[in-house]
């Protein structure tokens, strides 16, 4: 992977994002919620490098703090979805019959809702909040991982090393955790890397629609939504948060592409 320059570049972007998110309070030049109405909509200047928003808050500081939301949602949604998807995929893949059928029909139903439609519907009824975003995205998030794990288990469970473990008397849990899972990790890692990019975009989309993070908490999507009202007079309010989202998503996509090539995973 280290020979793939774009993947290394992607890893550097993600490293920077994590660093910025952790040390936001030390890096941000201003309090992200501190208002100064006389400075409202000021374009980029020496003091405020990325300008100020409608309430005079420093855009750079809000973007720096906004990275925490993206990282939190990205990691928590993918972490929970990965765990849930792996568990369900293992149960379905290792137990052909009605259990497998049941899970796969649930998967079919969840896949019938395109894109973030289900997340929009869920946050609309549950109310806009960060926790509800995580919940809504997890409900559909696990499906992809469950399908990968199930498919991989169906492929590898008849391999010789698994049959040998079974012949030695290993129980299904041990076979799955010690023999099967370590051998099917590569596609999961690749999928999770692309997944974080999608989740960050989804969170920003929901916040943009007013269904996610609520003011005054800084989030890139809600910053873009606020900026939309001042598109003609203060385009900097829309430009910089959008650029931040694109760079981070691009970083995860670069890394995902690199990992796929180096781990030799065929794209499904």
């Amino acid at each position: 992977m280290f020979q793939n320059r774009l993947a290394v570049f992607g890893a550097c972007i993600i490293g920077t994002l994590i660093f910025v998110a952790i040390f936001a309070s030390y890096i941000a030049p201003f309090d992200p919620c501190e208002q100064s109405l006389e400075g409202g909509l000021t374009p980029p200047s020496k003091q405020h490098l990325l300008g100020q928003d409608g309430l005079g808050r420093d855009n750079l500081s809000r973007i720096i703090y906004g990275s925490r939301i993206s990282i939190f949602v990205g990691i928590s949604v993918i972490g929970i979805s990965l765990l849930l998807g792996t568990l369900i995929g293992c149960i379905a893949g290792y137990n052909p019959g009605w259990i497998d059928e049941l899970f796969m029909r649930i998967v079919d139903i969840l896949l019938a809702f395109p894109g973030i439609l289900l997340a929009i519907a869920m946050t609309a009824v549950l109310g806009p909040s960060l926790n509800n975003i995580v919940l809504a995205l997890c409900i559909t998030g696990w499906v992809g991982y469950a399908r990968i794990v199930r498919g991989q288990i169906l492929t590898v469970k008849e391999r010789e090393y698994v049959v040998a473990a079974r012949a030695l008397g290993a129980n299904p849990v041990r076979i799955i955790t010690h023999h099967i899972l370590p051998n099917i990790l590569s596609p999961l890692i690749v999928e999770a890397t692309f997944g974080i990019a999608s989740v960050i975009l989804a969170e920003a989309s929901l916040s943009f629609l007013g269904l996610g993070t609520q003011p005054p908490t800084p989030s890139w999507g809600s910053m873009l939504n606020e900026g939309r009202q001042f598109l003609l007079v203060a385009p900097h309010m829309t430009t910089f948060p959008g650029l931040a989202i694109m760079i981070v998503v691009l970083g995860f996509n670069f890394l995902g592409d690199g990992l796929r090539d180096s781990l030799d995973v065929r794209k499904d």
Binding site: A204, F208, P235, L243, I245, V249, N253
Partner: peptide, 18 residues
């Protein structure tokens, strides 16, 4: 192409408008 996949449409739209 990778840039296009990573570009949020709720950002591209306002940019095109401007």
């Amino acid at each position: 192409a990778l840039l296009g996949v990573s570009m949020p449409n709720f950002w591209l739209g306002p940019l095109l408008m401007i």
